[in-house]
């Protein structure tokens, strides 16, 4: 009897674990939007809040990851 219960609890927990893993395969849309915005701001140089393209040549160093923390 105790063994049956243990098996039942175990099965339920394994199901829950499988559920956790299953959730993970869904595409994280919000995170992807955030990532897209970060890259778009960098490529189009929108970081300073000005929408006009930055002066050519004097732009930020290509892909400087240090400057990424400061998001407007």
């Amino acid at each position: 009897m105790a063994l049956d219960m243990r098996a039942g609890v175990g099965a339920a927990m394994l199901l829950a674990a499988a559920g956790c893993v299953t959730i993970n395969i869904y595409f994280p849309a919000a995170a992807a939007e955030k990532a897209a915005d970060r890259i778009i701001e960098e490529v189009w140089q929108l970081r300073e809040g000005q929408r006009a393209p930055a002066e050519p040549g004097a732009g930020t160093a290509p892909g400087a990851p240090a400057a990424e923390g400061a998001k407007p």
Binding site: V21, I23, N24, P28, A32, K34, R38, G59, G63
Partner: peptide, 27 residues
């Protein structure tokens, strides 16, 4: 499961190179 809730990794060497290349071309 946790990383899927937070941020996507966009800092791999290949991605960093592509970002730099696109930024340069944008001019």
């Amino acid at each position: 499961a946790a990383p899927a809730q937070g941020n996507l990794d966009i800092d791999s060497p290949a991605i960093t190179a592509l970002r730099a290349s696109m930024q340069q071309r944008h001019a």
